[in-house]
Nucleic acid binder design. Structure first.
Lengths: 226, 226
DNA sequence: GCAAAAGTGTTGAACTTACACCCATGT
DNA sequence: ACATGGGTGTAAGTTCAACACTTTTGC
């Protein structure tokens, strides 16, 4: 079936966002293979016959970070004829959100990977910069109406950390009081007894995102919105 | 280059939305080829070596409707192993918005195409129903913050028509006064002298979307929102 | 003259924004 | 004792939602 039609190489590329408690960053690798050897690039890999495309993206993400069960969403497919000068490749871009404190530094050293602040990105190969720009806009839109920001934080986090994260994502400052009011009013965070003393003398209370409560509220017509 | 990697069939499928001044509808074709001959399906086609994937989508849309320069946006790629039982195909879904009064009935008869109301869709082959559901949600989100609804209307339209369209897209009614107030306050519609007498005795004033004004306002930080 | 759709303003409620001081702690 | 970041409430402004009647015209 379909034998008369042309076939193509299909790859996945991963836009990996991480938050190091200060800045929103992107994980890139220095290519040690042709073409474009030595230049910065997104982590990618060719699709195999044995896997769904989503699985390919999970595999590629795992190869670089050693992480599984990570928030991973397809961005879109890129398929201009000349996007890769070494051959026709249809690339399907995914973006991932990870707690960048948690990933495997050992593995990523193998790939010569490093984190870049979003406003000091290196030159990237092919159309990877286009993918990244699109991913940033998508991340902003998604974060405005879905509770995925938490994917970038450790399981327990403080409200100042959360606020800083959103300020990084949206590129603007929020009023501390209004931010807390809004977030807490949603009733989807559980306040813990513990405090985090990293950020200040006084220490800030830790919170956890309560997915069950969120799901329950969603079924009652609640809408998350920052 | 890349020779050791597997290649795949790549196709595009088009989710074609149309508005017939009453209802939001989807254009499907009855397959007259295997597999799944005789069942309803989205219009699709295999990618050719000579074209970008966006061009492939334009070609497929043109084949069925005879229309060019249509709003067409990529939805995402679908690549589960078993999505097409006749062979491994990576399908890239696009959705299009057309004024369904304007398309070529001649051509589409060849393909045994017909329009279906969104809440009475036929069974669709493969994962086409999943694509359509995703396209509907995407359309709703896009229409909320971008002036793409106009793509579904003729160049000149009345406010009652526009309101009906948005009610169809979002699946809920709006208050007539509030809707007019909001739309007109944006200042992106030009009121014409002519009236459209189709819908009523009295007749309703025709308006045009003013893209230049919209673009100018966008540069000044304006945000479209319904 | 009547049926059918087009057009038009106001008010209360809800939400958003702006803003300043005290608290707890480590050094 | 002081420097640092954490935590808290209120008032004004803005936006949103609800609501009913008059106009025009073809029949």
């Amino acid at each position: 079936m379909y034998r008369k039609n042309k076939k193509f190489h299909v790859a996945v590329d991963c836009i990996i966002f991480g938050f190091d408690r200060q800045e929103l960053k992107l994980l890139c690798i220095k290519r040690d293979f042709e073409p474009e050897k030595g230049r910065w690039s997104l982590m990618g890999g060719f699709l195999k016959e044995s896997e769904d495309i989503d699985q390919a993206a999970e595999r590629v993400l795992y190869q670089l970070t050693g992480l599984e069960h990570i928030y991973l969403e397809q961005l879109q497919a890129y398929g201009k004829r000349e996007r890769d000068p070494a051959g026709r490749v249809i690339s399907i871009a995914y973006y991932a959100l990870i707690d960048s404190v948690r990933f495997d530094k050992q593995i990523s050293r193998t790939y010569d990977a490093s984190w870049f602040s979003l406003d000091h990105l290196p030159d990237l190969v092919f159309d990877h910069r286009v993918m990244v720009d699109k991913a940033i806009r998508r991340l902003q839109r998604r974060c405005r109406t879905q509770p995925i920001g938490f994917e970038l934080l450790p399981e327990k986090f403080t409200l100042p950390q959360l606020q800083l994260l959103y300020e990084e994502i949206f590129g603007r400052a929020f009023d501390k009081r209004n931010f807390r009011k809004k977030i807490l009013a949603m009733g989807i965070l559980n306040k813990l007894e513990e405090k985090d003393k990293e950020g200040s003398r006084k220490g800030a209370y830790l919170y956890q995102f309560d997915k069950d409560k969120y799901d329950a509220m969603m079924n009652n017509g609640f809408n998350f919105e920052i």
